[in-house]
Design a binder for these strands. Structure first.
Lengths: 148, 148
DNA sequence: CGGCCGACCGTAGATTCTGCGGTATGACAA
DNA sequence: TTGTCATACCGCAGAATCTACGGTCGGCCG
């Protein structure tokens, strides 16, 4: 909503911070050829404006015992979203949930440690409506940095 | 594939680093009640084992001129994936791409600056097969930290 | 012209990082 | 038991970085 005007330097900082969220201000300063204090101030402004909403370690779900990823679509029969929010709060297996147009009201990304676990999780979700589950074979593009 | 044994401290570090990927080792050390050097060594091992595959700034796509998010499913009629990979390489609007089971072979997350832009992008994708587009109204759960 | 404002720079003290050596604990074999 | 070894942790010192501050420069407006 709130527009924020980004110049070329801001874009380069955003790109650098998406590639390495732990880059030091000194390092960032070197890549954009400015002083560390100017870079610090720019990044602080981007954070304050909400352009950068945070920083996160990227975890390989396969290496922490959650080898199965699935996209679950939920046909939701009514407009009372409370049960759905309760489900989200109670189901850590759901990594993302999006309210979308189309026949299926919600699309979720789900991680599970086994097929049995996935079955149990989708079963829980299907208490709210008809589900369609697609299991992820592989992800040709797991995460692309957001650029103009 | 490569199993990595995580103890309670590792989990707490992973959780902390997913919540704040820029937390200093000194800060992490305080949250898990260990010395900074021990924490540094643990995090280094997690990175080396591939449990932590990187760090990234989380960008609010709405504030950088990409207010529209859509999930695009692609029905892909054959087993030659080269054209699809070429499309991914040439289409920065696609933020994620997953190869999945079910009628639609691929599911993509797409960001666009306008409906016209989305139309143009899905049009490009539909050169490869039939597409089904769902526009994201909102995301009740945008990103949940991966936990046990 | 004179003053103001925004963005940048440079500096100093505090904090953090990095690499190293030292220590405690537990496993294992003689 | 005793010795040895490996692992994980701690603490330290020098280097690098961070943070907060004041100073400078160029553009803009009264």
């Amino acid at each position: 909503m709130t527009a924020y005007s980004l110049d070329a330097t801001d874009w380069r900082l955003l790109e650098a911070l998406q590639r390495d969220g732990r880059a030091s201000y000194a390092e960032l300063a070197r890549t954009v050829a400015m002083s560390p204090s100017a870079v610090t101030e720019r990044v602080r402004r981007l954070e304050e404006a909400g352009v950068i909403s945070g920083y996160s370690a990227v975890i390989d779900h396969e290496r922490i015992g959650l080898p199965i990823l699935a996209l679950v679509r939920l046909r939701y029969p009514h407009g009372n979203y409370k049960p759905f929010h309760d489900l989200l709060a109670a189901t850590p297996e759901v990594l993302e949930a999006h309210h979308v147009t189309g026949d299926d009201c919600f699309v979720m990304k789900v991680a599970a440690r086994s097929m049995r676990h996935l079955e149990e999780t989708t079963g829980r979700i299907s208490g709210l409506g008809a589900v369609t589950t697609s299991i992820v074979y592989s992800s040709p593009l797991e995460r692309r940095p957001l650029v103009l």
